[in-house]
Structures are given as structure tokens and as C-alpha cells.
């Protein structure tokens, strides 16, 4: 399962669409592998970031995402793309968050 964790600093970002960094993990069983880390191109958008980031995640072909909270535009867009939106405590270790998301142990937004 591919999970995109929205990261700020070294932990899960409180914000979804405007988190500075996106880390993509491939999770298989207990194995968590960081496959990609990139700047979030939607982070600095004056408006509409919630929609644009969904397009970015769709291109990254992820199955789920993790952030502290989601805006309504983002949630609607994620649902349409079939990407699960999981919520984790801001600051959580991204790798741990990815594993928990893949196991379905996190609450959904």
C-alpha cells in the first residue's frame, strides 16, 4: 500500500494541503519503505490548495494519506479519487503514521 504522509519538520503536519513536505511510503506487512520525498507544490498557493494537492496525490498514485486535519474541499476531492484520509496527531513520526495508516489503525477524516 502506498501512503502519502504530509510532513512539517520531522513529524506529521497539522495541515493537509499546506504542509511543506510530502513523503510517500510503500508499506508491506511490517516493512515501511520511504520511496519518495518532495516539496508540496500546493503549499504556497494563495487559494485552492485543498483541491490542487488532491491532484498531486492522485498523480503519485497513493492509496491513503495522513495529516492532522483536512479541509472540506480536500476531503471531497480525496473521496472522489478513492484516497483514504487518515488523521494522526501532529508531530507523530511519519514512518509510524504510514504503518498505522496501512493497517487501518488511524481514524479517518
Amino acid at each position: 500500500m502506498r501512503v502519502a504522509v504530509m510532513v512539517e519538520g520531522d513529524g506529521v503536519s497539522a495541515r493537509f494541503a499546506r504542509a511543506p513536505e510530502i513523503r510517500v511510503y510503500e508499506v508491506e506487512g511490517d516493512e515501511v519503505e520511504l520511496v519518495e520525498s518532495r516539496e508540496n507544490p500546493a503549499a504556497g498557493l494563495p487559494r485552492g490548495a485543498g483541491r490542487q494537492i488532491v491532484g498531486v496525490l492522485a498523480q503519485l498514485d497513493v492509496d491513503a494519506t495522513v495529516a492532522g486535519r483536512y479541509g472540506p474541499n480536500a476531503l471531497q476531492g480525496l473521496k472522489a479519487q478513492g484516497i483514504k484520509a487518515y488523521i494522526a496527531e501532529p508531530g507523530t513520526d511519519p514512518e509510524e503514521a504510514a504503518l498505522k495508516a496501512a493497517r487501518g489503525e488511524l481514524p479517518e477524516g
Binding site: V54, G55, L57, A58, Q59, G77, Q81, G82
Partner: peptide, 25 residues
Amino acid sequence: CGECARVCHSGAVIVGRSWDLDPGL
């Protein structure tokens, strides 16, 4: 293919696994 989403300045059209329009945007 996502061409429409690439030119959509307001982010109303998102294309990934599905074609999705937010008519409000």
C-alpha cells in the same frame, strides 16, 4: 490523461483515478 486538470487554474477539475469536478470552484 489529465490535460483538463493541468489547465484548470481554479482546481475545479481533478484527474487521477477518476475525473472529478467541483462545480462550485
